[in-house]
């Protein structure tokens, strides 16, 4: 059986909305795929091209910014 490609995703999440939503989901015992790695940022406006470049350089296959 061939192994299915599972992309590694880095998620930059705003402390006040997306990350809080993630927290709430956790409290509700909901889960999200383990290939999504969450990074909390003080504001999604803080996310710069360099954050995405570094993540890609370190092996991420995709990035999303939530805020």
């Amino acid at each position: 059986m061939s192994e299915q490609f599972e992309p590694q995703i880095v998620a930059y999440c705003c402390k006040y909305c997306a990350y809080a939503a993630g927290d709430l989901a956790g409290s509700m015992r909901l889960n999200y795929p383990s290939n999504v790695k969450v990074v909390q940022v003080p504001c999604s406006g803080r996310v710069d091209i360099i954050h995405m470049m570094k993540a890609l350089e370190e092996g991420a296959d995709g990035i999303y910014v939530a805020g």
């Binding site: 710069d48 091209i49 360099i50 470049m53 570094k54 890609l56 350089e57």
Partner: peptide
């Protein structure tokens, strides 16, 4: 400094 970091990352990714 910022552009250096971005170009540096881009070059390393391209060569990799």
């Amino acid at each position: 400094r910022k552009e250096v970091e971005v170009l540096g990352a881009a070059l390393r990714i391209a060569r990799k």
